[in-house]
Computed example of a mutant assay.
Amino acid sequence: MLCIWFSYTDIRWRIIPNRITHPLIIALLFIRVFEPAYFLGLIPALILVVCFFVRPNSIGAGDIKFLAVIGLCYGIQGTLLVTLITCALVLVFSYLRKICRFKKLDMIPLAPFLSIGVLLSLAVHLLL
């Protein structure tokens, strides 16, 4: 359900609300305190934090927080799979926009692609 809400707000207003992500991250940190392996799932989000500070308009802070939530939920393997799927989907989306000659977007809302990545990674996990 959160994936749908994050996707909607990211598409509509280009934000992912802090009033949801911050408490969620804090709650997940407390839940995972005795499962330190899940903290490795924060690595992709930390890499994006570096990208954000090097080039601030390259990714939104909400997308980074959403990826941190995903990392704390799924650990490093699940988060890497979600990230891989997300990158592939964004690449296909960008390519299709280019060949169809749609107006160039300044920024692509990443939350819908992260959400699809979460759903597809869950499907992969259930099938294997």
Rank of each mutant, 00 (worst) to 15 (best):
K103W: 05
G78E: 07
L81Y: 07
R32H: 09
I59Q: 07
V92G: 02
S121H: 00
V124C: 09
L40E: 07
V69R: 07
S121W: 00
L80I: 13
P17G: 06
I108N: 05
I43W: 04
I76L: 13
V82Y: 06
Q77R: 14
P44K: 08
L84H: 10
R12G: 14
A61P: 09
T9C: 14
F113G: 06
L24F: 07
P36F: 02
F102C: 06
L81M: 11
G60Q: 10
R97D: 09
C87G: 13
I76A: 04
L24R: 05
G71A: 01
T83W: 08
R55P: 10
P44Q: 09
I20G: 03
F52I: 11
L122T: 04
V49K: 10
A37D: 13
I43F: 12
P36K: 03
S58P: 11
V33Q: 11
C87R: 04
C100Y: 12
Y38M: 08
S121I: 01
N57G: 15
V90W: 02
I15K: 15
K103A: 08
L96Y: 06
G117K: 04
W5E: 15
S94R: 03
C100Q: 13
I76Y: 01
T79L: 05
L72F: 01
F102W: 12
V124F: 10
R12D: 15
F53Y: 13
F34K: 14
L119R: 05
Y8P: 11
L96V: 10
L114M: 06
G75F: 01
K104M: 09
P112E: 04
R101W: 07
S58F: 10
L42T: 05
P109A: 04
I20Y: 07
L91R: 06
L96H: 05
M107D: 15
I15L: 15
F52R: 14
F34T: 15
S115N: 03
R55M: 14
Y74R: 05
F66V: 07
T9N: 14
F53L: 11
I16D: 06
F93N: 01
F39Q: 00
R14G: 13
P36D: 05
A61L: 13
P56C: 09
S7Q: 11
F53R: 09
T79D: 07
R97N: 09
R19P: 00
I4R: 14
P112F: 02
D106S: 10
G78R: 02
D10V: 11
G41Q: 04
G62K: 09
L122C: 11
G62Q: 10
C51W: 15
L110A: 06
P17H: 10
C87N: 10
L119P: 01
P17E: 08
L84I: 12
R55V: 15
S7W: 11
T86L: 02
L114G: 05
A123V: 11
Y38V: 02
A68C: 00
S121N: 04
P17V: 02
A27P: 02
C87A: 14
V33F: 10
G41C: 07
P23T: 03
L2R: 15
